[in-house]
Amino acid sequence: MAKTLEVVGQVCPFPLVEAKKVIDEIQSGEELIINFDCTQATESIPRWAAENGHAVTNYEAVGEAEWTITVKKK
């Protein structure tokens, strides 16, 4: 089952700081769903995932200034 990280309300760079912590706790191939509303993270989270080789299996805007992204650990 995918783990969910709720960081709505947190300002950058905390969503990414939290995501880095949680990704260390899950197994390779497991998915992490990150729900966030910090605009700058729309750039920093997918960039971090790509640069570290994690696959992004879902990425969408769920509302005004609210996003969800699913990262599958390498």
Partner: peptide, 17 residues
């Protein structure tokens, strides 16, 4: 820019922030 990109929303910080 934010409104047209659907990136505008009033967001209240938590106490610490």
């Amino acid at each position: 820019a934010a409104k047209a990109s659907r990136e505008f929303r009033f967001r209240m910080p938590d106490t610490k922030t």
